[in-house]
Each structure stands twice: as C-alpha cells, then as structure tokens.
Design a binder for these strands. Structure first.
Lengths: 216, 216
DNA sequence: TACCAATTAATTTGATCAAATTATTTAGCT
DNA sequence: AGCTAAATAATTTGATCAAATTAATTGGTA
C-alpha cells in the first residue's frame, strides 16, 4: 500500500474504468470476464476489482451467471422495450431540466462534442463515436442536476453500450444521422421543446438500430 | 470456510439482509453504518459485507460520504419529485403487464397479503406493514416478468424505505388507506385499467405522505 | 471413434492482516 | 474557560492465502 497521495479509493476508479469498457464497447456481449483477468489487465488488486464488479452488476452492466461466472449480458427484445420505455420518459425530462440550466459555456462544449462526433463518424472511429456521443448526452443531463434520474439513465446506457458497439460493427458509423445539431440549436435559442424533441428522436433512432441487430 | 451445503454466495444473502433492513425501516435516514458493525450484527465476515454495501450503494439504498462513511441517505424534495416521476411511469406499467399474466393463485396470494396489511395497520405494526406492503406490490410486479423495470422500481423502493418508516412513526399506521382492495378486485375481474388506476393512486398517496414529513 | 468417469487446472469466495485514513480524545497554551 | 495541536483509537482499504467450487482435460472403455 505505497500510495503517496491518492484521493479516491481504488475500487471507485476501477469501477469507472470497467464501466467505460462496457460503455464504449471494449467488451462484447456474451463475453465472459474473469476477476483475475480484469485485475491483471488494469493492474490492480483483486479485492477492489470485485467490489467494482458488484457495483456494475447491480447496475446491469454485467451479470453473474448461476455458475458465478461474470459476463456481459446480451440484449434481448424484451429488455429493449423496457429500456426504451424508461429512456423516452426520463431522458427528455433530463434534457428539459438541463436545457433550462445550461450555461453558454456548456453549449459551447456541446458544440465541440458534436464536432467530435462528426469527426469520429467520418473516420469510422467506433470507440471515439461512442465516447463522444456519451459525453454529449450526459453533459446535458449533468446540467439538469437530477441525481436519481441521472443514475437510472446511466444504468440503462451501460446496458446498451455493448449493443451499440455491435450496431456500429454491423452498419458502420456512416449511417448514423445525429439529432445533436437540432438539440444544440434549440439550446442556443432557448427552445426547450426543440431540445426535447431532438432527444426523443435520437433515442428512437438508436433503439431502432439495436432492434435491427437483434431480430436478425 | 466450513459451509456444508450452501448454494448461494454469502455476499448475495448478506445483500438481501441489508437491503431488507433498509427497505423495512430498520435503519433510520442519516444513520451511519460501519462495516464492522454490520458484519458483527449479521454474524458474517467483513469481505462479503463490503461487497453487499457496494451493491446497495449502487442502487441508492446507501450512500458513501466523501469521508468514506456509509450512511442511509435522507430524502429531499428534489429527489422525491424524481422518484415520483419514474414510479408513476414504471409501476403502473408493471402492474398492467403483471395483471395480464396473473394466475388465480397469485390473486389469492395477493388477497392474503392484503389481509396481512390490514392486520398490521390495526396492530400498529410498522415493520409488518412495510414488509407486507412491499410483498404485495412486488408480487404483482414479479408476475410482469420485466427484469429491468423491476430492478429500477426496486432501486426506488430502497430509497423511500427509510422515509416510509418515518411516515409511520409520525402519522401512525391507522391513517393509511389502501388502494389494494381496488387493485385485487380489478385483478379478479380482469379489469386492467382499474388495477393501473389503483396503483397510480396508491403511489401518489404514498409520495404525498413522505412529502409532508419533509417540508415540516 | 464416441462417450463417460476421474483427475487436474482455473477461478471464485471469504477470512485475515498491515497500511492508510479518518474520527476522537487528551494535553498544552493563551 | 476556550481554543489549537498532538496523540490515540476506530475504521476503511487493499493484498494475500486457504478452502471450495467450477471448468477443462485426460484416460479408459465399449
């Protein structure tokens, strides 16, 4: 325990690392994860990795089989419907709340992220796209300052992360039209309704893409 | 490790135990919990208790302060609004799905639970009321067989559990009118709309009670 | 070759311990 | 007395290890 000046506990940072692995498609649906493998890959002890896995499991990003094996869950049609229901309820609400509190600085940051998204799409950079897309959405949601809705939303995103990776692998990134331009425009003009509508459409499109990779 | 024939891992059962402590009001909002204290009280090792705490923290039932202290969060108005929004969206939906799949056996079980609720109210048995009320709702929700909605709902219930205890302590259990009779009637008659409406009203009432204990 | 039992390897699980961090108490000073 | 600083106690944190469980492999038999 030779940590000189570490502020946050290790299981916290490890949790974030593993979460981002799931969120940004570094792990594939169905892929089994060993606790030692993760510890070795990250370069950490086994104990904090276990705690992080429990947390992610609670949020749905991972699942423990009855054999105690830890895997990345594979999306089902049934799940997708439930996720869409809640996303369409919570995220537009978060967007409205966020839009009302959004500073100009935030808007500029969002436009920068939107540019990053476009660039990633052009380059076919899947990981870059997934990450920038995530940051875009949650920059708005964070502005809403609604912890519980934010937590719920995040738990839904970790569930769809691996599937989005599959979507990109199947269709490529070029087919992705984004509603983000509309959203940022709405934010600039103070047109909250437009923001809400853009987000709704964005969610519907994303869910539809995933749906197509399931019912193959 | 002298477990003869234990099926589930220990952190799993400990998680359930602590969750029920939160759910049924055995811990008070603001109350700090030490990891050793819990381990001792439950009669378990420290490691599985830690894992259980991480899980409950991820679900919102507990919270870790910046000092790493673990506490039962105290409800705020802001949180209550968010919880109500999601509950009113998800739980009636779960009720509808559950009602459609509800066997007669389930209906009988629900009527039994409803009787338990009445009895607990008469006796002023707070813990009994909270537990029976929980079982009643989640018996319906479980019938819906919608894992994700169920998980979200459960995470909201662990957030309001401690507050409900406060509600009962303040107002007693006698003031609690229940919508459960209406719900079971609807289930028997196959009147899904009635079930949905009863649940909505039940949720609104519960949230209103909690609201009154906050804005004192 | 195909199939099944037995052995071996890999992994999870939970206890224990030292180090680090935080909370509490005591002592000293004005 | 009142307040600050040092010392003590309590708690968390992460590594390590033995036991248990599960997966993989080997060997034997029909």
């Amino acid at each position: 325990m030779n940590k000189i000046v570490g502020k946050k506990p290790e299981h916290e940072t490890i949790y974030v690392q593993i979460k981002e692995m799931v969120l940004f498609g570094e792990v594939v649906p169905g892929q089994p994860l060993t606790i030692h493998g993760l510890a070795e890959k990250i370069g950490a002890g086994v104990t904090p990795v276990r705690e992080a896995i429990r947390r992610l499991t609670a949020e749905g990003g991972l699942a423990t089989l009855e054999n105690r094996r830890v895997v990345v869950p594979t999306m089902t049609m049934h799940w997708l419907e439930q996720i869409e229901l809640v996303r369409l309820t919570v995220e537009p609400e978060l967007a409205v709340m966020g839009a009302e509190k959004c500073s100009l600085g935030k808007v500029l940051e969002l436009e920068r992220l939107d540019a990053l998204i476009d660039e990633a799409i052009r380059k076919g950079d899947i990981r870059g796209y997934l990450e920038a897309n995530y940051r875009f959405h949650f920059t708005i949601y964070d502005a809403a300052d609604a912890l519980i809705l934010r937590r719920i939303t995040e738990s839904l995103w970790v569930r769809i992360g691996p599937s989005l990776r599959v979507v990109c692998g199947r269709f490529g990134t070029t087919n992705l039209t984004d509603q983000h331009r509309e959203a940022t425009k709405g934010l600039r003009d103070g047109d909250v309704g437009k923001v809400k509508q853009a987000l709704q459409e964005d969610i519907r499109q994303g869910m539809e893409f995933i749906r197509q990779t399931i019912e193959n």
